[in-house]
Amino acid sequence: MSWSFLLRRLLLAIPTLFGVAAIVFVLLRVVPGDPIAMLIGPGATERDIAELRRLYGLDESIALQFVYYLQDLAGGNFGTSISMRQDVMELVLGRLPVTIELCLVAMLVAVGLGGAMAVAGAYWRGRPGEAAVDGAAGFILAIPDFLWALLFILFVVVFALDGLPISGRIGHDVGFRGATGFLLIESLLRLRFDAFGSVLLHTVLPAFALALPLAAIIARVLKTSIAEAMTQDYILMARVKGFSRARIVCREALRNALVPTVTLTGVQFTFLVGGTVLVEKIFSYPGIGNMAIDAVINRDLPLIQGLVLTFAVLFIAINLLVDMSYALLNPRMRHG
């Protein structure tokens, strides 16, 4: 992979980000409700309101507001949250590690589960086992993460599985405050296994809800690629050598089937990240998705803008990583 490839991709991200910023900005400026009116009590005078409008820059024309906004963005200033009266960047960065950890756990679950389903389906090709894998993948995929999350909650309540928490990120009785937001990684590094276990238990259900649709997609695509790889000459060679079927599927075919799956998994991973908005809300999980819904309900313009931009940056970064890994996996792409 060349530096010019990376540079070109980074430059291409700029117009996309600009477009996202512009659309969100214009959308939010046609809000009929007045965010200032929600901010202050009923006893406020006209002058107080004008003062606050000036403070938040809402008294300028939309075009001028946009120019100021872009200037601020370029300087790393995302503005001040109206509902929480804190720096947006600080608020977002405080919550971002929570969502990143949740997404990574979900990704691991999706890859593990989807990979296992694909290998099982390929191993039992043409037998009832394959049909079962196909059926399961189809069923999982038809139900979105939002409904899986609610089904899990029902399941926990109806079967009284008290060990599995359905809200929050860490137990109240666990006295652990990380220096970073990455509680899972940090508790492990500090050998606080009680905290690690608590965070992991709280993460299981939201992570599975997010992971299931992706797992089903991985299962489908990977199974097809393995089936394609199985028709190649080197597989015949391996058979002639007398390798077992399990070894041929897992060692020879799987490795060559990975490239198309990685690309697709990356694209689908962005949907998983987008899914955190609702899944975090349902499980009261304190990440940026949960924060986004509250920001919308409170009409907190700067915070909404900051969060939407954060999501867009995450999406672009994921796509970039996918392209890079694709180039690494497939030698023919390296000099593209």
């Binding site: 996309t16 477009g19 996202v20 659309i23 969100v24 959308l27 939010l28 046609v30 809000v31 009929p32 409700g33 962005t270 990240v273 987008g274 899914g275 908005v277 609702l278 998705g289 986004a292 819904i293 919308v296 309900i297 009409r299 909404i304 969060l307 939407v308 999501f311 867009a312 999406f315 672009i316």
Partner: peptide, 21 residues
């Protein structure tokens, strides 16, 4: 289309409805 798809769909729908009432 590309720019549009860079938004998280769920978040965009929530923002849109919040804007329109």
């Amino acid at each position: 289309v590309e720019i549009w798809m860079a938004f998280p769909a769920v978040l965009l729908s929530i923002v849109l409805v919040a804007v329109m009432g």
